[in-house]
Amino acid sequence: MVRLNMWYYKYLCLLLFVFIGNVNFLFGQGNCLIYPEDSGERKACELSYRALEHRQGSKESQLLFDEAIKIGPKYAWAYYQKSVPFFKRGLFAEGISLINKAIELEPWNYLYYRAYWYFYNRSYGYCIKDLEELYTVHEESYTTTPGGDLEMRLLLAMAHAQSGDVPKGIYWMQHLMERYEQEPQLKGLYDHFCLGVLYYKNNQFDLAEVEFEKQLTVDDKFADTYYYLGLIKAKAANNTLAQDYFKQALAKMNGENGGYSRNSFEAFNIYKEDVEKMLND
C-alpha cells in the first residue's frame, strides 16, 4: 500500500511538472498560438520567429521585423527584438526609439532592457527611473540582465550608489535578499559581493566583511572579493592580513587555481593595477 502511494505521488508530481512546463511553453513569450488566427499579433509573432532564424542584425532579419511591426503594431516583442542589434552596434538613437515602443505596450516586460543599456552607458538617473518603476509600479519579483547573470536590482543598487545615494543602494540589495528568502535557489553568484561593496562604500566595514565572507562560500575564485577584504583589513590597520588578501586577489586575477575577475560592475570594477597599487603601498 505504501509502495502504491509512493508510485502515485511520484507520477502525480511528474504530471504536475509536465503540465506546468507545457503551459509555460505554450503561453510563453513569443508563442504564436496564443493569438487568434489571422490577427496582426499572430502574424507578427510568426514573422518575428522567422526573423530570428537569420543572423542578428542582418538585413533579412531587420526587414522581417519591419514587416512584423507593420502587420502587428501592438506586438511588443518584435520592437524589442529589432532593437537588440542596434544597441549592440552603438546605434542607440534607433535602438531607443524601438524599445520605447515596446515599453509603451508592455512596460513590465521591457523596462529592464532599456535600464540595462542606460546602466551600461552610465546614465544612472534614467536607469534608476526605469528600474524603480519596474519593481514598485509593476511589482516585478525577479528579472535579470540580458545575459542572465545579475538580477537587475544589483544594477539599480549600483546606480544609486554611483549617483551618491549608497544607503538607497543598500536598501535595494536588502529588498533583493528578502526575495531570496522565499526562493534561495535564485540567488546569483555576485549578490553578496555587491551588497558587501555597498556596505564598504557606506563605511559599514563589519557588515561588508560578513557579506564578503558569504561571497567566498558562494564563489571563492572571484578575485575582487579578496581585494575588498584586503581593503577592510587595511582600514583596520591589519597590514599583514591585508597584504595577504591583495596577494590572493592578484593570484586570482592571474587565473591561478581557476581564479578570475570580471568587469560587469562598471564603476565598481577592479583592475590588476588597483591590486598592484595596494601591494606596493
Partner: peptide
Amino acid sequence: NADSAVKPTTYDIPTRNHDL
C-alpha cells in the same frame, strides 16, 4: 486553433543586403 500550427506562412524573404 485546429489547423493553424501547420499552416505555411506566405511571406517572402527579402533580398540580401547590408548588415546593420
